[in-house]
């Protein structure tokens, strides 16, 4: 019998379960789930970079770029979710492709901070642009789905399903891609770039491809969040704190499995929600404290819990 990948099976089961869950989930839970899917997708891009040995402190650039592209298109009369998300994803990808020519030459802290510098340029531009509402941002109406125009709760239900389908495809795609030769090159680049070059591959090109991918998914996440919230503003879309949240989620998840980023994002949202509820004055401490705890006790992220479980079983 042909070997079937267990991660793909797991993701597919999660997908089916969530599709059904979409219709009877509590509204607040669905909204948190939707955000987790979108932010998890961004973290997936960071995971791919991380496996290549790179950390970016500036992916709010692509997140914000995707979000603002989608939002600005609604200003000129486009409301179809497919088109808006596609445009947001693509524009962020193109931006990542262009900046990639510069960034692929840097490693480690230089790579991380250059990304951050670019993201803060976007932030600065938005804040200075009165037409885009500056720090107040601007609102966009509910999206339509190929002519279907839901209202009220149905908007979130439809958007959740929409996001779920695309994140499922992207995540399975990434998982399979990571097993191809070019995909496996990630770890090779991280471990020894010079050897990679001697094997006849260009390390910079490998990095560039991953970078464009991470830009695409970050733009995707941004466009989804813009549609889900119905409002874009620089502080929740393009500020460096947003980039920090993505790194937080990636550390929380660990890079062991592509599915982990969604669990990490969900855990992040839940910690934040409950910290907000029970400790409104010191919720940042709780968020920071949990990150510290993860780094100290689970240095490989939440995913290592699952692998430990598996090991003790086997």
């Amino acid at each position: 019998m042909r070997y079937v990948d267990k991660t793909v099976i797991g993701l597919s089961i999660a997908f089916v379960v969530l599709v059904f869950a979409d219709f009877f989930m509590a509204e607040w839970m669905r909204f948190i789930g939707l955000q987790s899917l979108a932010r998890g997708a961004v973290a997936l891009g960071l995971l791919v970079l991380w496996r290549t040995g790179l950390v970016s402190f500036g992916h709010a650039l692509y997140f914000g770029f995707g979000a603002y592209t989608a939002a600005m298109l609604t200003l000129i009369g486009f409301h179809d979710a497919f088109f808006l998300v596609f445009a947001g994803t693509l524009s962020a990808g193109v931006l990542a492709f262009l900046l990639g020519f510069l960034l692929r030459r840097y490693r480690a802290i230089f790579f991380a901070l250059l990304n951050m510098a670019f993201s803060m340029i976007l932030y600065g531009v938005i804040v200075k642009t009165e037409e885009l509402g500056s720090t107040d941002g601007f609102s966009l109406g509910p999206p339509t789905f190929l002519g279907y125009a839901p209202e009220g709760e149905a908007v979130q239900t439809a958007l959740f399903l929409f996001t779920l389908v695309f994140t499922y495809i992207v995540t399975v795609g990434v998982h399979l891609y990571m097993k191809t030769t070019l995909g496996s090159m990630s770890m090779a680049v991280r471990e020894n770039e010079i050897r990679v070059e001697y094997l006849g591959y260009s390390a910079e090109k490998v990095i560039h491809v991953k970078y464009v991918f991470s830009g695409l998914v970050a733009g995707f996440g941004g466009a989804i969040i813009a549609l889900a919230i119905g409002q874009v503003d620089p502080d929740s879309m393009a500020n460096w704190t947003v980039s920090g949240e993505f790194v937080f989620i990636t550390i929380l998840s660990g890079i062991g499995n592509v599915g982990a980023t969604y669990i990490g994002a969900l855990v992040f949202e839940l910690i934040r929600t409950y910290a907000f509820e029970y400790a409104p004055q010191v919720w940042q401490f709780i968020l920071g404290g949990s990150l510290l705890a993860i780094i100290m006790f689970l240095p490989d992220g939440i995913w290592s819990l699952f692998s430990r479980f598996r090991k003790s079983e086997g």
Binding site: K6, T7, I9, I13, K179, G256, G259, W303, S307, F309
Partner: peptide, 13 residues
């Protein structure tokens, strides 16, 4: 090394 985590993904589901 990432292939081994299939069972865990089931758990996640």
């Amino acid at each position: 090394i990432y292939k081994r985590s299939g069972k865990a993904t089931l758990l996640l589901a």
